[in-house]
Amino acid sequence: MKTCLVVDDSRVIRKVARRILEDLGFEVAEASDGLEAMAWCSAVMPDMILLDWRMPGMDGLEFLRRLRAEPGGETPKVVFCSAETDLDRISEALDTGADEYIMKPFDGGIVAGKLDYLGLAA
């Protein structure tokens, strides 16, 4: 079973994302900020990370930079999931190493489409 780490400071968003990803056949773990997510990834790299941008402590972009510098940190597909819809910021996320980008609000169809594009569909 493929694994996905959902990183978001909102419990509601984590819950929504978990339901969508479990329906798509993923085993889901949750982290509420970048630091907690780094701890998860040091233990075991997930196949995919759904990553919020603005979080207290370590934000999504900083987490992504550190992840990509870790051994094995190139492996997980990282999909940003953020309320940021400015195209220059989206480019920044992609240039920093994100594989895809989802603008909030989102639904199951959008997530499924992105996973299909990344070759992660079950």
């Binding site: 195209l87 989206i90 480019s91 895809e100 980008y101 959008i110 489409g113 594009y117």
Partner: peptide, 18 residues
């Protein structure tokens, strides 16, 4: 919502303006 259905983010930033 429409723009996120099937359109990769790279294609979005390359060909669209907000």
């Amino acid at each position: 919502f429409e723009i996120q259905r099937g359109l990769p983010a790279r294609t979005l930033v390359r060909h669209f303006e907000k």
